[in-house]
Write a protein that binds this DNA or RNA. Sequence first.
DNA 1: TAGACTGTTAGGCAACTGTCTAATTATGTG
DNA 2: CACATAATTAGACAGTTGCCTAACAGTCTA
Lengths: 95, 95
Amino acid sequence: MSNNEVFKALSDPTRREILRLLGLGEMSAGQLTEKFDMTKPSMSHHFAVLKDADLITSRREGQQIIYSLNTTVVQDMVAWMMDFFRHDPNRNNEP
Amino acid sequence: MSNNEVFKALSDPTRREILRLLGLGEMSAGQLTEKFDMTKPSMSHHFAVLKDADLITSRREGQQIIYSLNTTVVQDMVAWMMDFFRHDPNRNNEP
DNA sequence: TAGACTGTTAGGCAACTGTCTAATTATGTG
DNA sequence: CACATAATTAGACAGTTGCCTAACAGTCTA
């Protein structure tokens, strides 16, 4: 995964809310769009950004596109963050 | 803390690197600036963004400004992320 | 107080982002 | 096939971001 793309993806509140909703279970593009006061193309753009960052996956099911959280990448991300901020400057730099 | 400001602050690679360096111990603005191929005003801007997000704190020491990681907010942030992504749709929503 | 040193503020500019409308693609159904 | 439904792609546009140079502000020392 590209850390930068992941952070860029997470920098928008709409996209974080999409991720939160997908954390509760997979949803179609249409169902997700209903939850926001935004046009379908705008939402579609956000889905694309999240997909590029590998934070979500998609599959077609008939006329609908079903989106799911990519839990692997999400967990990698959390692990990366914890490691990133592991050091505690108040404990005189012991590894 | 405002989640949005924190995520916006984290969305830039330069700012993440500043945080990583401060994770190793506090540094002056000048010491930090040396580590990057960027002008002082640009770096100062990044410091301001990180301060607004409450990710770092600063104090004056003579002619220098010393920056430190705000470990409280950083830890809150990690905790928030873990909670945010705690749900696993592949494990049928058991708490 | 003058000058050097350290850092921030102000203003400008190109590139990027998030939103919209209009058009297009893909699938399902009478 | 013709039409409806679901979603994406294309293009435009305002607002934001990140960088720069120039100017300013605070601190120290002779």
